[in-house]
Amino acid sequence: MNKRVEPVYLEDKLQEIRADGHLKYRSKSLPTWCPGCGYFSMADGLTVALNRLGLDNRNVVTVSGIGCASRFPFFVNTYGFHTLHGRVLPVATGIKIGNDALTVIAVGGDGDAFAIGGGHIPHAARRNVDMTYLVFDNGIYGLTKGQTSPTSALGFKTSSTPYENGDAPLNPMMMLLSYGASWVGQAYAGKPHHLTDMITAAIAHKGFSFLRILSPCVTFDKTDNTYKNLSMMVRDLPDGHDGTDMMAAMALAMQDGHPALGVFFQAERPTLAEVMQTSIDRAQQASAT
């Protein structure tokens, strides 16, 4: 357990990475995640995505709540706000309203998102706040050392469910689709290249984009969401999936036992900033007459 495991990919691909330029999006702080944690591939994926999109780091804000995933802002070289447990979305909404020129990326884990923060997701989604919400779903509370989470499977044994979890897990994909998120996708930490593409697409989307990233907790979950199990469960999007078809997206989301990877649904609709601008225009017209 105590033996330090060096992240292999850094050593192997150093040259390639330096040439790519995405390292400038990496902060000087070293991630505190456990070796082998799925979150490393996400942090890497984000820096690559930011680089691909050519975003100036001073105009990007990474916002998080509390949890393992929420340490994220410290490890990327953008403006960051590490907030409170469950409150990443309202803070991120405020930042976006406060300065619409900023690219806002909210991150968190499944507990932060779907338990304590569950009440905020529908509202950020329905308002279509132009931001990206990356939820790292490992089905467990890692930072508090392994309690059950809203996406833990039935029968899962943790320190808070010693006699097995009896609470039915949430289905985040169905939730987000029904909340009216204008971009809903799914990725897997074990497929880092696809993950990077998905993060890039999510950020590029105008409106509220939700990316669920399946990930193992290598320390506290040795039985369920392991790399081995997840790798067997995940599948590609069915051929010919129509990302504008809500019924098809819902059908896909319902099959959470075999999670599909890709963009389930995407739509164009006015963002919160655009709606607010309409109000401003109307108010100014009304007061001018």
Binding site: V63, R87, P90, A92, T93, G94, I95, K96, G119, P122
Partner: peptide
């Protein structure tokens, strides 16, 4: 102007906007 979903979001967004 935004009517939020609760008071927690109201102050959270206020602080978020203040940060920005």
């Amino acid at each position: 102007f935004l009517q939020t979903e609760d008071e927690i979001s109201a102050i959270a967004a206020t602080i978020g906007a203040g940060f920005a």
